[in-house]
């Protein structure tokens, strides 16, 4: 076999592998959507679920998923941004830094059930926060932090040293250089990290069962005062998310149409993730264009 033939064989093999990956993904997508979408109706999307049978609509759960995501991001993004900037820019290469890095690695490999039980014992029971959105958001922050921190650190480190030197040589402080010059360039990479971790938040069930709870009390969508118990924005109310709801329908659902309900909810969950990804990318691109003046 000469170099040319070898090259051709390698190309074919690689093409096949890529086709397999894309094929599996497409198959899953088509299967879930085609099984679920026929059962989706406006009433299903917006209606309340029946706590007894676990059946009915998913309106509250859908909102809960998004709300939990937003809260989680509000908590985890600033923390991981700070940690990422520290690791990329300020940390010296010594035993302390490698200790921090291994701590982050360990954190990212914690099983979600363990995080859930830990959150349950500490926030729900000890801090008396109860099964609530905020307990769930804090627990999910534990998942997000390692992923986001590492992602932000890598995105920042990927920006050329010469950009930092340019900033410093103009008399800008290290901090100003980092925030005003390096961060905007690293933005697309950071958005990718946010999208990836958002997918995890949407899909997480185990950790939320013990923290955000499995019930979705009826909420009044005309009441936007976060202090009111019935307000959807109240961070102290229990909040079953879509993923938890799917798990519940399948394990404890008593409704005769449980299979259809869970298929429909799964389809909506996937669409919600896709929608969020698309939105985050558009927003990221828009911001990137704004700060870098590129087309």
């Amino acid at each position: 076999m000469n170099a040319k033939q070898r090259d051709r064989v390698a190309t074919v093999v690689i093409d096949l592998i890529v086709a397999a990956v894309v094929g599996i993904l497409l198959f899953l997508l088509v299967y879930i959507l085609s099984a679920g979408l026929p059962h989706v109706s406006w009433q299903f999307l917006t209606g309340a679920s029946d706590p007894m049978s676990g059946a009915g609509g998913i309106g509250v759960q859908l909102f809960n998923s998004f709300y939990l995501l937003v809260l989680t991001m509000l908590i985890s993004l600033p923390i991981s941004l700070g940690a990422g900037i520290y690791l990329a820019e300020y940390a010296k290469d010594n035993w302390r830094t490698s200790l921090i890095r291994s701590a982050i690695e360990v954190l990212s490999s914690l099983p979600s059930v363990v995080v859930g039980l830990f959150g349950f014992l500490l926030f729900v029971v000890k801090f008396k926060m109860g099964f609530s959105v905020i307990s769930g958001a804090i627990a999910l922050t534990f998942f997000n932090l390692p992923l986001l921190t590492r992602n932000i650190e890598e995105s920042l480190s990927a920006v050329s040293r010469s950009q930092r030197e340019a900033g410093l040589s103009l008399g800008l402080s290290k901090w100003k250089t980092e925030i005003g010059i390096i961060l905007p360039v690293a933005l697309p990479g950071i958005v990718t990290g946010v999208v990836l971790s958002a997918g995890r938040v949407f899909g997480e069930a185990a950790a939320l069962i013990y923290t955000a709870g499995q019930s979705a009390p009826v909420t009044n969508f005309s009441d936007w005062n976060p202090m009111d118990p019935a307000s959807p924005l109240n961070p102290l109310r229990p909040a079953e998310t879509l993923a938890v709801h799917i798990w519940k329908i399948n394990t404890e659902g008593m409704a005769s149409n449980a299979a259809q309900l869970s298929a429909a909810a799964s389809a909506i969950l996937i669409l919600a993730v896709l929608l969020f990804n698309l939105g985050a990318r558009l927003l990221g691109n828009f911001l990137y264009r704004r700060v870098t003046a590129s087309k």
């Binding site: 010469s162 950009q163 340019a166 040589s169 103009l170 010059i181 905007p184 360039v185 003046a293």
Partner: peptide, 13 residues
Amino acid sequence: GMVFQRPNPFSKS
């Protein structure tokens, strides 16, 4: 002030 070996304009306008 300083100017470097490789042109390093900021990725801005």
